[in-house]
């Protein structure tokens, strides 16, 4: 890898249509003012419940969705409206691994096809060199014997193996940043760690940067140096993973951490930081702190005004009126 890559997201906004009529559509805001940084060789975990907008970030970066506002830059160059060759180059560098390993491989093609295509498109490999590289990549992600695996169809592989194929596909393209959208959430618990270890290896050996999207804050701690906690499209706390998991400041992060099963605690121990409740929907004209409805410490102020960013430490930020 020649130079370090930095993917920067600034003030990202995304509105989706939710009902209404064609002329007068009702909109909901899936992402509001999201800013983050992703570097090669590092992992950033995006943690949140379903509906927190965490997958939307990856889908906007890869161009599956268009952003409503904000900027995405790769080494300082805006990538939102790339066309043609620039778009191809960007895609080579930034790849995605999808959540559902059963839907992300084409059932009518062999594994070889899935690995060959990015090699042909991005690295223009042919003949023996192509075959050798296919086998090398498959071996690299632990799918051995590579030759036999290459000839298989997706339905002959397990979920964990398929997810390895997905990672191999990203590598084959020559990706330097991989956006992994809950890559382990649909796998059996026993094989999750294998996939996480694989990603960890890729990160260290090949200097690949990962965005690790998950609802499981425990695995974030295992894998990522940086963590951002999302709630209803907002970043509520972000910074160094160790700090966030050991000394969470935002009530929502505290709730998430206390929800991680811990054998040393009684099962009826009260959850810290908040109560169970409905996750609200955010609209472009909503006001206040998105977590106010569920927060135990919420005041009238919280319901009226969105908290600003507070720097708690060198690499620790939050959006909460408690600390401003």
């Amino acid at each position: 890898m020649s130079e370090k890559l930095t993917l920067t997201v600034k003030g990202l906004k995304k509105d989706f249509r939710s009902g209404g009529t064609t002329l007068n559509p009702k909109k909901m805001r899936a992402l509001n003012d999201v800013s983050l940084n992703l570097e090669s060789g590092k992992a950033l975990a995006i943690v949140g419940e379903s509906g927190s907008g965490k997958s939307t970030i990856a889908k906007i970066i890869t161009g599956i969705h268009d952003p409503t506002g904000g900027e995405i830059e790769l080494n300082g160059k805006n990538v939102v409206k790339l066309k043609g060759d620039d778009k191809r180059k960007f895609r080579q560098k930034v790849q995605m691994v999808f959540q559902d390993p059963f839907a992300s491989l084409n059932p009518t093609h062999t594994i070889r096809h899935h690995i060959e295509r990015p090699l042909k498109i991005h690295r223009k490999l042919k003949g023996d060199a192509l075959e050798a590289e296919v086998l090398r990549v498959l071996t690299e992600v632990g799918l051995t014997p590579a030759k036999a695996t290459a000839d298989k169809y997706p339905h002959e592989l397990s979920g964990g193996q398929r997810q390895r194929v997905n990672i191999a596909r990203g590598m084959a393209a020559g990706a330097e940043i991989i956006l992994a959208d809950e890559p382990t959430s649909m796998l059996d618990v026993s094989i999750r760690i294998g996939v996480l270890n694989l990603m960890s290896d890729m990160k260290d050996k090949h200097d690949i940067g990962f965005m690790y999207i998950t609802h499981d804050i425990a695995t974030a701690r295992y894998f990522a140096e940086q963590t951002a906690v999302m709630y209803v499209g907002h970043m509520v706390e972000w910074g160094d993973t160790e700090t966030i998991t050991q000394a969470p400041k935002h009530p929502y992060t505290q709730l998430l951490i206390s929800a991680v099963p811990d054998p040393s605690k009684r099962i009826d121990a009260p959850l810290q930081g908040g109560e169970r409740g409905e996750i609200p929907v955010w609209y472009p004209d909503s006001v206040g702190c998105p977590f106010a409805e569920r927060c135990l410490s919420a005041t009238d102020h919280c319901r009226k005004e969105m908290p600003g960013v507070t720097q708690l430490a060198d690499n620790h930020f939050t959006r909460c009126h408690l600390y401003s």
Partner: peptide
């Protein structure tokens, strides 16, 4: 809407290959 089509688009497959091959 299937992810394998999205994935093919992301690795840069042209529309004609996505339609006929994928």
């Amino acid at each position: 809407e299937k992810e394998f089509i999205k994935a093919a688009e992301l690795i840069g497959e042209p529309a004609r290959r996505i339609i006929f091959i994928e």
